[in-house]
């Protein structure tokens, strides 16, 4: 399965990608997402699932069933937009609370066996060079922490550049 997380308005998304996505779960912003409350309940109370049971409470499980994760996000200060970051914050049950040493640094142990390809598209009219550098380092860091198979990051000024593109 592929997972596509994006922060585009529904009408823009439909216009850009009118073709249907096969075997792809699409996570979009319907305005109902709750933020992570830092309780670690997804590790010690209901392991593997967020204790907040809104539509985004099973992000960890969705990530575990993926071979590819695609993100389309506005670039905010070299990171994701608030909605996309919210989805990722709510997905930490994908990893295990225990630590392992990877690349001589402390990271979280894996809960699941799958390794996905991580593909990120950042859009924005005014992304500075500095922000691009931060974003590239961020995707690399995410890829190490989530123990991804591979990662890539691309920048576009306007989402219209993605029209008709095969993701």
């Amino acid at each position: 399965m592929r997972l596509l997380i994006h922060d585009l308005y529904a009408e823009n998304f439909q216009k850009l990608f009118s073709n249907s996505f096969e075997d792809t779960m699409i996570i979009s912003d319907d305005g109902t997402i709750h933020n992570c409350i830092g309780c670690f309940g997804c590790w010690v109370k209901t392991p593997g699932a967020c204790v907040i049971r809104d539509k985004y409470g099973d992000m960890g499980e969705y990530l575990s069933k993926c071979t590819e994760v695609i993100i389309i996000s506005k670039c905010c200060y070299g990171g994701f937009s608030p909605f996309v970051k919210n989805v990722l914050d709510r997905g930490i049950s994908y990893i295990h609370p225990y630590f392992v040493i990877r690349n001589k640094e402390m990271h979280h142990k894996r809960r699941y066996e799958n390794h996905f390809d991580f593909k990120v598209w950042f859009y924005g009219e005014n992304i500075s060079e500095r922000e691009k550098q931060t974003a590239q380092k961020l995707i690399k860091a995410n890829s190490i922490n989530l123990d991804c198979k591979s990662s890539s990051v691309k920048f576009i000024k306007n989402i219209s550049e993605m029209e008709g593109m095969a993701l």
């Binding site: 933020n35 992570c36 990171g79 970051k85 919210n86 914050d89 930490i92 995410n142 922490n145």
Partner: peptide, 17 residues
């Protein structure tokens, strides 16, 4: 603030935007 997934927690990010 605490580090969340290598970055700023989303609720704080919304506020600073």
């Amino acid at each position: 603030f605490p580090l969340y997934v290598d970055g700023i927690p989303s609720h704080l990010l919304r506020c600073i935007v």
